[in-house]
Design a binder for these strands. Structure first.
Length: 620
DNA sequence: GCCGTTTTCGGCCCGACTGTTTTCAGTCG
């Protein structure tokens, strides 16, 4: 089993922490931290590439030395540099960095003066009042340490593991942010109020919220908005209170930072507080090369401010076109901007229909008509009704007979609807042996199929991948739904070889779904980029179980944008005739298809007449 | 340790806030 990229990333992150504590060159530390992020998020398994004997791809940020360490970790599971450093300082020292207020200097001080090597030692020293006696530290930091160590996620047995910072789905964050924005609106002299940070970049989960307010210079409204902010009833504690920046902790467990900036600095501030940090560093470095200084107040040549009221101005100052927030992760967007190869990202307006929705017939809470009317109101051209199949008994999955009834009903609805076409479809279970949960005779009656894994998540990577590829061999398999099965924060993805699956899908004219449910967002952004690179088209679908969930499309579109996807890469940006042509390429590809002359069109009738199902009234 | 729109060495983003100080180091984003 090759080591996952995340494991290599963790070692780099650990190296960065320990080197920083040792007082190593800060740029060397940054290189390791940067590499940790790059490697963890790299869409393909680096260990597999090495195991195959292939060359590692050229990755910006991984030079000769770090590439060598990737190879070492991938082949041996260990890193000699880490072992060497751990002879000098204990590895667990890095866990102390997770305590707010403790950075490398103080951690080293704690070790040198009090022999503190882990969280347990730290707790004992704090309880005995020894921390406050150290130079530069005092009773306040001691209280913070004890408070943090009382939190269950920090106090870990053996104190060896880093605590996970809590992150929430965007939908949850929206429920927190909207009332807060409402509370802050209408403060006199506040011109604009906007959520920046990772939320604006469209990250799938939100760890903290960055609010930006502008007012006329010189910060006429700063005091009143800060005061209003800390009076918000959901504020549990005020972490920092300054003239231009205030941070609070909300009862919901999320940190919110509010920055107040002069209106003229809006663009520079929005750019700065949108991040990401590494993107900002790269943009500022470009500025430095041009003799410019870029901060949240503007772009400066010497002491003269030359730009900053819009983000476009900031980018123009360093010779770049505007870069969309979702791309600002320092993952090639600046290089693409230089080469004029930035993607024209898909937007909500590009979407022509939804290809995954459930009704009352199974586990949905809406009728076909209700969903269809809502889709029509959204201006869609088509909507797929994709109820579950019989294997998913907990969702009252449809057997062939009930599905045929639904097909007839959809035909009747389509006669009445006019501009919207309801597609006859199904979310077909992929069984353990890779077969589909409906006979081909039924599947061929559908306009489109969405196929998914709902059980046996714990198969080996090899078996799970084989299972899905076998399913794709079926001539009626169109879209692989929620490919990894993850539920954000609740269930990890099951093991699959995503690249192999995508290559198999391409060969078989199949597609991948980007499921827009806010706790799924499955594919993730890296999978989206991989799909684009491999030429596999993606359907952005809501998997709606209620009319209101058709609105989840926006989460899917945001995720797709983070994955650099353009309208061309998306299945449901196409009109129904265009989509039909793409689907037809699958059936005409397959030797088992009814569209091949040797396959009789009336085999459905034969199947139904075998006695297991009622025969439909007519060929639908 | 990385990298080249000053290219193989020399530079690498920038400011706010806190706590412990009495002018600033450390931390954070």
């Amino acid at each position: 089993m090759p080591v996952p990229n995340s494991y290599i990333g963790q070692i780099f992150s650990q190296l960065a922490d320990l080197l920083e504590i040792e007082g190593a060159n800060q740029f060397r530390v940054r290189a390791y931290r940067n590499a940790a992020q790059i490697v963890s998020q790299w869409p393909r398994s680096l260990a597999e590439i090495i195991a195959r004997g292939d060359e590692l791809p050229k990755i910006a940020g991984l030079g000769k030395d770090l590439s060598g360490k990737v190879t070492e970790i991938a082949t041996t599971g260990n890193c000699s540099l880490l072992q060497e450093i751990e002879k000098r300082i204990p590895g667990q020292l890095s866990t102390l960095l997770k305590i707010p207020g403790l950075g490398p200097k103080r951690v080293l001080l704690l070790r040198d003066c009090l022999r503190i090597e882990n969280l347990r030692d730290l707790k004992r020293a704090a309880q005995e009042g020894k921390i406050r006696e150290l130079p530069g530290l005092g009773p306040k930091i001691e209280r913070v340490i004890l408070r943090e160590l009382r939190k269950p996620q920090v106090e870990l047995p053996g104190s060896g593991e880093a605590p996970e910072k809590r992150r929430m789905p965007r939908q949850t964050a929206e429920q927190i942010i909207h009332p807060l924005l409402h509370w802050l609106e209408n403060v006199l002299d506040v011109k604009r109020l906007i959520v920046a940070g990772s939320y604006r970049r469209g990250q799938e989960t939100v760890g903290d919220l960055d609010l930006l307010a502008t007012c006329d210079s010189p910060l006429s409204a700063a005091d009143s908005i800060m005061e209003r902010f800390i009076q918000y009833e959901e504020v549990a504690s005020v972490l920092a209170r300054g003239r231009t920046k205030t941070s609070v902790w909300l009862r919901s467990g999320i940190q919110v930072d509010l920055r107040v900036i002069p209106e003229e600095s809006y663009g520079a501030a929005l750019h700065y507080f949108t991040g990401s940090k590494s993107h900002n560093i790269a943009v500022r470095a470009l500025g430095v090369k041009k003799g410019l200084k870029i901060n949240e107040y503007g772009v400066y040549r010497g002491s003269r401010r030359i730009a900053g009221s819009t983000e476009e101005q900031v980018y123009r100052a360093v010779g770049l076109p505007y870069i969309e927030p979702e791309l600002r992760e320092q993952k090639g967007e600046i290089e693409a901007a230089f080469e004029d190869h930035l993607p024209s990202l898909v937007t909500l307006q590009d979407i022509r229909g939804d290809l995954h929705a459930h009704t009352l017939a199974t586990d949905g809470r809406a009728t076909i008509e209700e969903l269809a009317e809502a889709a029509l109101r959204k201006g869609y051209q088509y909507l797929s009704i994709t109820d579950h199949t019989r294997h998913l008994t907990v969702a009252k999955g449809l057997d062939p007979g009930r599905l045929l009834e639904q097909i007839r009903k959809i035909d009747q609805i389509n006669e009445k609807l006019g501009d919207l076409r309801v597609l006859k479809s199904s979310e077909v279970d992929i069984l353990e042996n890779g077969s589909l949960d409906l006979p081909d005779e039924i599947l061929r009656e559908l306009d489109i199929t969405v196929c998914s894994v709902h059980y046996k998540f714990n198969l080996s990577r090899e078996k799970q991948t084989e299972r899905i590829i076998r399913a794709m061999d079926n001539p009626y398999f169109n879209i692989l739904a929620h490919a990894t099965g993850r539920l954000i924060g609740r269930r990890p993805p099951y093991e699959i070889d995503m690249e192999r699956l995508m290559l198999a899908a391409r060969e078989r004219h199949c597609f991948f779904e980007l499921n827009s449910q806010p706790d799924r967002l499955d594919l993730n952004e890296h999978h989206c980029r991989l799909a684009k690179e491999l030429g596999v088209k993606v359907a952005i679908s809501t998997d709606a179980h209620h009319v209101s969930e058709l609105e989840f499309m926006r989460y899917g579109v945001t995720q797709a944008r983070r994955g650099w996807l353009e309208p061309e890469n998306i299945l449901n940006t196409r009109s129904w005739p265009e989509l039909q042509r793409l689907l037809f390429s699958k059936r005409s590809y397959s030797p088992l298809s009814r569209d091949h002359p040797q396959n009789s069109r009336d085999s459905l009738r034969k199947h139904m007449q075998s006695g297991r199902h009622r025969v439909p009234n007519s060929d639908s």
